[in-house]
Amino acid sequence: MKALSVAIMLVMALPAEARADIAPDAIFHTLAAVKTSRAHFVETRHLAMLTAPVIASGTLSYTASGHVEKQTLVPASETLTIDGDTLTLVNASGTRTIGLSDVPEIGALVIAMRGTLSGNTAALHQHYELTATGDSAHWVLLLQPREAAVQRLIQYVRIAGSGASLTEVDTLQTDGDESDMRIVEDRP
């Protein structure tokens, strides 16, 4: 057991370029070091109901550990805040506060994004099967839900990034609908 952990530590210490694929934990390690970040996003949704995609854009902000705010500006103003297990949604129809687990439609995606950003691997491993590809400059993390309730809604969440920044969050739903969020980090 001890020998194994020493070996893992050695591998982790190697320069990332030296390996074919990055380990998920290495990505989280880098991300966990980020205490605060802001970014712009453009989200494109392809829905079977519609003959054309719907597009939304706005800003994202993250504060360690685990506070996420997604502010949509176009087409309509909406703020989604996640703090702990609570999700708060403010839009034209008012303010709603809901438990994350009550709305897996939103919660699953939030857990994936926040878990990645905060490097909270325990929460991620609990809910998702993780696979990482690429290297530290261009990594891709594939999250496949473990729970049946979430599997009914989501096939996978694919998060791509570069170093300590997220560049894309792509969600494929079980009914075939897809959402693709492109992220550009604001330079401080």
Binding site: E43, R45, L47, M49, V54, L89, N91, V103, I106
Partner: peptide, 18 residues
């Protein structure tokens, strides 16, 4: 509805929309 579909609650609205 179109606005709702692009919002965070789109996944919920979608279920009852038709």
């Amino acid at each position: 509805d179109l606005g709702q579909l692009s919002s965070a609650t789109g996944g919920i609205v979608k279920q009852t929309l038709p």
